[in-house]
């Protein structure tokens, strides 16, 4: 669907996006995740042809965005960070203008506009001036605009920024609905949001792609160094002997001794396989009853922080999110 190859973008001496390559498969929802200034907006602006790249290429369905911009752009619906709305128009007029400008045929125009308004639920404000609409409605008009011209890919730059919690939930539902019929790429610096709506998470930091996978896989990938927490009844020496020799178990740490001969332990797991079962059987053989056992895995939150702060301080933070003028 979209192939990004070795994309680099420099603003003068500052590199906003560095050698970024990405494949986007059709029919899924992608979340571009990264801290502020990671290069998300820049990447999106290049993908939609609003910005030229310093080097590298972007192909939409085989059409290069720089060499065949008209064919490539026709496949994309884009909502920039600030919705590009004309305040002196009503949503109905505005959508009519965008549909016409995108070259939607006269016959299909009314139908497409109606469909976009229904999907984004703005039909009730269709004849009010955009100037007078709330931020949530403006955002939806912006999304409706992106839907016109039946694009295959919808690109939304921080679609929920500045909305109240109720509106955020509504926009997320809307994005999920869009995901049924389009490929959707959205950007966000909020992890929970990306996890809530996306099938695939692309983590960007300092203009570089650091990870791209499903939320589950990302969690699993980084769970290799997870810890198994358990409470057993038995002697400390025996416990160390029994558990320390098990395959897949690293260091054994006694965290607390409780009255009644209870031991609280933390086992460091060395492989990505879960050693819970072998721990259970080993303890059963040694007649050490397990009273409590739980695997603690690295959460996505921790994965995100680990990935994006890996090279913290190696480069000064700069405001690269802004559209250059």
């Amino acid at each position: 669907m979209i192939e990004i190859d070795h994309l680099t973008k420099c603003y003068g001496p500052h590199t906003a996006v560095r050698d970024l390559s990405l494949r986007v498969e059709p029919g899924r929802i992608y979340g571009l995740l990264g801290p502020n200034g990671a290069g998300k907006s820049t990447t999106m602006n290049i993908m939609t042809g609003c910005l030229a790249a310093t080097s590298g290429s972007v192909r939409i369905d085989g059409h290069d965005i720089f060499e065949e911009p008209e064919q490539a752009k026709a496949l994309i619906g884009y909502l920039p960070e600030l919705p590009p709305l004309y305040p002196e128009m009503t949503p109905a007029e505005y959508l009519d203008f965008v549909a016409q400008a995108k070259g939607v045929k006269q016959k299909e125009r009314a139908e497409q506009i109606e469909k976009a308004m229904r999907t984004t639920r703005i039909d009730n404000v269709a004849d009010r001036l955009i100037r007078n609409l709330s931020k949530g409605y403006r955002q939806r008009v912006g999304i409706a605009q992106a839907l016109l011209g039946s694009p295959k890919v919808i690109i939304l730059d921080e679609p929920t920024v500045g909305l109240d919690p109720q509106q955020i939930i509504e926009i997320r539902d809307l994005i999920r609905t869009l995901g049924n019929s389009h490929t959707v790429i959205l950007s966000s610096h909020i992890l929970s949001e990306v996890r809530a709506v996306c099938d695939e998470i692309v983590i960007i930091s300092k203009g570089q792609l650091v990870a791209s996978d499903t939320p589950e896989n990302l969690e699993r990938l980084f769970a290799g160094s997870g810890t198994l927490e358990l409470t057993v009844r038995g002697e400390e020496k025996q416990a160390r002997q029994v558990l320390g020799t098990l395959p897949g178990v690293g260091a054994v740490k006694i965290t607390a001794k409780k009255p009644g001969g209870l031991l609280q332990l933390e086992l460091e797991t060395t492989s990505s396989t879960d050693p819970s079962e072998s721990v259970f059987f080993a303890c059963a053989d040694a007649r050490m009853p397990i009273l409590q056992m739980g695997m603690h895995r690295a959460s996505l939150e921790e994965v995100f922080i680990e990935l994006t702060s890996a090279d913290q301080g190696s480069q000064p933070e700069q405001g690269e999110e802004e559209m250059p003028s």
Partner: peptide, 16 residues
């Protein structure tokens, strides 16, 4: 167009 950021819409349009 530049002030109200609608120029981004123009850039993204499939017309030159």
């Amino acid at each position: 167009e530049r002030r109200q950021h609608t120029d981004q819409l123009l850039y993204a349009l499939p017309i030159g």
